[in-house]
Computed example of a mutant assay.
Amino acid sequence: MEDFFEALTSECKNTALPEEFNYFGKLIGNWAIDYIESNNSLSIKGEWYFSWVLEGMAIQDVIILPDYEYGTSLRIYNPDTHAWDVAYGYTGKIIRLEAREQNDMIVLTYINDKKRKWIFTRIEDNRFHWKNVTVKDDGEWNINAEIFAERIK
């Protein structure tokens, strides 16, 4: 199994990935998170881990929300579109998204529903904020869930 992890993980970003598109790079590391759902006030403490993989051309993460959801995302930089192709999977479901930087945010848009988005915002060295939103017809964002993250390592 150790060979698998050595083959998967990378120590750093591949130099072929342009720095201007390395907007997920600040997330590399381990995070303590507070997950909050808006519609039912559900609040869960969890963990979120991000690592370079696939020779530094992709980032994989694992999110752990005990007794609720365990999931993983694979974010692969696409040099043809200058965006990141993202697949998020958890028990019984896989979601495809495309990620682009917009202003000071990373916006991941669902491939099958452009009104559904995941937003990384306020990304700092030791904290970030994440939102699961639905864009209403008037353009306003309805926040479905939020994560407040603090760096562990």
Rank of each mutant, 00 (worst) to 15 (best):
Y23M: 03
G25M: 03
N22S: 15
R127H: 15
V62N: 10
K45L: 09
W52R: 09
I76E: 10
E150A: 13
A99E: 07
E140K: 14
L74I: 12
G89Q: 04
W141S: 07
T9R: 13
I36W: 00
H129G: 06
T121L: 08
F128P: 04
H129S: 11
W84L: 04
I28Q: 01
I63S: 01
L27H: 06
E55L: 05
N142V: 06
T9I: 11
F24T: 04
G71H: 04
W130K: 02
P18Y: 08
P18I: 07
W118C: 04
Y49Q: 11
N144K: 09
I143L: 05
W84R: 09
N144L: 12
E2H: 12
G56Y: 06
L97S: 06
A83E: 15
W84Q: 04
Y77L: 02
A7W: 10
L42Y: 00
A149V: 08
Y77H: 10
A7V: 01
K13I: 12
L74W: 01
S41H: 15
E69W: 03
G46A: 06
K136R: 13
S41W: 05
K136P: 00
K26Q: 14
I59R: 03
I36G: 00
W118E: 11
V53M: 02
G25C: 10
E55I: 06
T134C: 04
L97H: 00
Y68R: 09
L17R: 00
F24I: 02
